[in-house]
Amino acid sequence: MITPETVAYLARLARIELNETDLARFVPPLQEILAYVAKLNELDTSQVEPTAHVLPLTNVSRSDDPLPSLSNAAALQSAPCTDEGCFLVPPVIE
């Protein structure tokens, strides 16, 4: 059964800040849902190929011909914070 610790770890992986109250609210439905999806284990799928795509498509590609890019203004038009034609973020510590 999924624990609050696991949910906290997953939330961290997904970069979503969850406090104790949040965890208390999120954990029970997740437990319930996971208990439900466990019904797939009733099926023996050892001989079954997975379906990643429903269409039998392969080798879809494009030719290496350039097309116009966006203007810098259009590229940044919805960014919350910009400077010098770039997206601005708090310092990234390396």
Binding site: V7, L10, A11, I16, E17, D22, F26, L30
Partner: peptide, 21 residues
């Protein structure tokens, strides 16, 4: 982590966590 906690509704967060799991 603040943008994603406050920017998403609870159902979306629930599905992201389930999918991450």
């Amino acid at each position: 982590s603040h943008t994603r906690r406050r920017g998403f509704g609870e159902e979306v967060i629930r599905r992201i966590i389930l999918g991450t799991y």
